[in-house]
Computed example of a mutant assay.
Amino acid sequence: MLHIHFTAEDLGRTRLATGPEPMWEMLLSLHKLTDNEGRVVFDGWRRRVRTVDRTGLPMSARWLPLLAPPVGYSPDFLTPARQAGDLGTGLDLVLATPRRRLRHDLTTLAAQQPLRGPVAELADGSKGALHQLGRALRDYHAHALAPFWDRIRTDVHADLTTRGKTFLHSGIEAVLTGLHPGARWNPPVLELPYSRDHHIHLDGRGVRLLPSFFCWGRPFTFHDPVLPPVIAYPIEHDLAWTAPRSPRDPGRPLAALLGRTRTAVLTTVAAGGGCTTTELARRTGISLASASQHTGVLRDAGLITTVRRGGHVVHSLRPAGAALIHAPAGRGRPR
């Protein structure tokens, strides 16, 4: 059982994530790829991941299950505590992990299983191993998650919308007890099903609640209670989420509504899982000023969201934008 100890200050500082986080989805999907849990929900995805081009995982990523075993401990550094809504930011945070953190986490992993190959090199602090890790994570994401990212994002945002309404109507305690059917709120302690008996004392830090598409069965959190508290929790799934969408060109009806350039901007934000204005301008072949103008219009329309991270502005698709892109094409005049 997971025991989360709140203070009154913690309840005020508890917050929801703003969307799916690629690094958490990568870790938890690696678990699902190898543990065979949730077969009704995930077996279709497993088959597609293992059979694309008949190669299974990309060669560069085949060692990742050794770093993220489905049972027991997975290194905390793979899921940064700082919010990272896009792949680039998440990878930067992972690859900037201090050497002492790498050594601490991989020493913990070594107590559970022998470290082999690139995992052992990571434990030694090799810069080449970190580069290899970055390539493996990027290739795994492109192979296993990117083809489904629109659906992942839409379902996570749907959960966030529901939690937000629960908070407005019933308060934070209703949000906490709604994280899992087995949740129990015994003030000031929230108890959640977990893989082991684990206590987290928030001590005024609050906690970030992260809905996760690949979290299954019970919530997931850091092994080290000193890290900023994050609770990843399972969401509901449509059993047909891996079914291919009917082929059509979304650009044609969207272009009639939004214009060709603005359609390109919206679909580029969707395809990238979030991107900066500079990346958006480069991918669409327009100027920075034009990219800023179009994202402003799309943001005002509620189709994308924009947040500042460091020196960059990152644009991400909102549920309304995803719904617009994937809306069925018209079939002629209504009778």
Rank of each mutant, 00 (worst) to 15 (best):
H3A: 15
H5Y: 04
H5M: 06
A8W: 02
T14N: 07
P22D: 15
L27A: 09
L27S: 07
L33S: 08
E37M: 11
R39Q: 08
V41D: 02
W45Q: 02
R48K: 14
T51W: 12
D53I: 00
S60D: 00
A61G: 03
R62N: 03
P65I: 12
P69V: 05
G72H: 09
P75A: 00
D76I: 02
P80D: 01
G90D: 05
L95W: 10
P98K: 09
R101S: 15
T107M: 12
L122S: 08
G125V: 07
G134P: 06
A136S: 09
D139W: 02
P147Y: 13
F148N: 04
F148L: 07
W149R: 14
H157I: 04
D159P: 03
L160T: 03
T161G: 01
T162E: 11
T166E: 12
H169L: 15
G171M: 11
G171E: 12
P187M: 02
L190V: 00
L190H: 00
H201N: 10
G204P: 02
V207G: 01
L209D: 01
P211G: 13
S212H: 10
F213Y: 12
R218I: 06
P219A: 05
P219I: 04
F220I: 01
D224A: 12
D224N: 15
D224R: 12
V230Y: 01
Y233N: 01
H237G: 05
A240V: 12
A243P: 02
G251K: 08
A256D: 09
A256F: 10
A256S: 10
T261Q: 08
R262N: 05
V265K: 04
V265I: 15
A271H: 13
G273I: 13
G273C: 14
T277P: 08
R282P: 04
R283Q: 13
S287G: 11
Q293A: 13
H294K: 12
D300M: 10
G302N: 10
L303G: 05
I304P: 15
T306V: 15
G311M: 11
L317C: 14
R318E: 15
P319V: 11
G321S: 12
A323Q: 09
L324K: 05
I325W: 10
I325N: 07
A327P: 00
A329W: 00
